[in-house]
Lab assay of single mutants.
Amino acid sequence: STVKVRLGHLEVTLHNVSEEDVRELRELWKNGADEEDLRRWLEEWKK
């Protein structure tokens, strides 16, 4: 499914993403990950 995730002022649209992935991303964000960390996660996730 396609999910729009809003993290601060960063809005990311993920395609074919699982609930688990979204949860993981939100956890990262809650734990103080900055945009760099999130971008890195997204790069990994896209592979």
Rank of each mutant, 00 (worst) to 15 (best):
E11D: 08
S18T: 11
N16K: 05
L28C: 04
E35D: 09
E19H: 08
L7A: 04
V5K: 00
N31A: 10
D21W: 15
H9Q: 13
V17Q: 01
A33G: 09
E19G: 05
L7H: 02
L42S: 01
T2L: 09
L14H: 00
T13P: 01
E36M: 12
E36D: 13
N16S: 05
L28K: 04
K46S: 13
G8M: 03
L28I: 08
L10A: 07
R39K: 11
L28T: 01
L14Q: 00
E27W: 09
V12R: 02
W41L: 03
V12N: 01
V17T: 02
T13Y: 08
L7I: 15
R6S: 10
E11A: 06
H9M: 13
W29G: 03
T13F: 09
V3P: 01
E24Y: 13
E36R: 09
G32W: 03
D37V: 15
L28R: 04
R40Q: 11
K46T: 12
V17R: 01
T13E: 08
G32V: 03
R39T: 07
H9Y: 11
E27G: 03
V3S: 02
E24Q: 15
E43L: 12
V12F: 15
L14F: 05
L42M: 09
R40K: 12
L38G: 00
L25M: 04
D37W: 06
K47G: 10
E27C: 14
E44V: 07
R40F: 06
E24K: 15
L7C: 06
K47P: 05
E43D: 12
V5T: 01
R6V: 14
K46F: 14
L25T: 00
V3Y: 02
R6M: 14
R26P: 00
H15A: 05
E27F: 06
R6W: 14
E19N: 08
E44L: 13
D34W: 04
E27Q: 09
N31V: 06
R39H: 06
R26F: 15
S18H: 06
V5S: 00
L25S: 00
V17M: 10
S1P: 05
E27N: 10
H15W: 09
T2D: 05
L10T: 13
R26M: 15
K30D: 07
N31Q: 12
W29E: 07
V17Y: 03
N16G: 11
E24G: 08
K30N: 12
K47Q: 10
E11V: 13
K4T: 15
L38F: 11
E44Y: 12
H15I: 08
A33L: 05
R6A: 07
V3C: 07
R23G: 06
W45K: 09
V3R: 03
R23A: 13
H15Y: 15
K30V: 09
D37K: 13
V12M: 09
V12D: 01
V22M: 15
L42Y: 15
K47T: 08
E27T: 07
A33V: 09
L25H: 00
N31M: 08
W45P: 01
D37T: 15
S18Y: 04
E19M: 10
L7Q: 02
L28E: 01
W41S: 00
E35A: 08
R39G: 04
V3G: 01
S1K: 12
T13Q: 04
N16V: 02
S18I: 03
V3I: 14
G8D: 04
L42T: 03
V17A: 08
V17N: 01
R40E: 06
G32T: 03
S1I: 15
L42G: 00
V12W: 08
H15L: 09
V5Q: 01
G8T: 03
E11P: 01
S1M: 15
L10E: 13
E11G: 03
R23W: 11
R26V: 11
L10G: 05
R40D: 05
E36P: 05
K47H: 08
D21T: 08
R23M: 12
R23L: 13
G8Q: 04
E36K: 12
L25Y: 03
D21R: 07
L38R: 01
E36C: 09
K47R: 13
W41C: 02
E43N: 11
E24A: 15
R6E: 04
L28M: 12
L14N: 00
N31T: 10
W45F: 09
L38Q: 01
S18E: 04
E20A: 12
S1T: 14
G8H: 04
K4E: 05
K46C: 05
N31H: 10
R40A: 11
K30W: 05
K30L: 10
V12S: 01
D21K: 14
K46V: 13
T13V: 14
G32A: 05
L14K: 00
L10K: 08
K30H: 08
K4H: 11
G32Q: 05
W29C: 03
K4Q: 09
R39E: 06
E44D: 11
L7G: 01
G8P: 04
V12L: 13
S18M: 07
E24S: 14
R40Y: 06
H15P: 03
H9R: 14
N31K: 11
K47F: 08
L38P: 01
E20V: 09
H15K: 06
V5W: 01
E24R: 14
W29D: 02
E19F: 09
L10Y: 13
E27D: 09
E44S: 14
R23N: 14
V3E: 02
K4S: 10
V12Q: 02
K46N: 10
L25G: 00
G8R: 06
E36I: 10
E35K: 05
V12Y: 15
S1A: 14
A33K: 03
L38Y: 04
W45T: 03
K47C: 07
D37I: 14
A33F: 06
L28H: 02
W41Q: 01
N31E: 05
E19R: 07
L25F: 06
S18Q: 07
H9K: 15
D21M: 13
E43P: 01
L7M: 09
D34E: 10
W41T: 01
L14R: 00
D37A: 15
E19T: 09
E44G: 10
V5R: 01
W45Y: 12
R26W: 15
E36T: 11
N31S: 13
K30E: 06
R6D: 02
L28Y: 05
V17I: 10
W29M: 15
H9N: 15
N16M: 05
R40N: 10
A33H: 04
W41K: 02
R6L: 13
E36S: 12
H15C: 08
W41N: 00
W45H: 09
E11R: 08
K46H: 13
K47L: 11
E27V: 05
D37S: 14
L28S: 01
S1C: 14
G32C: 05
L10R: 07
E19Q: 12
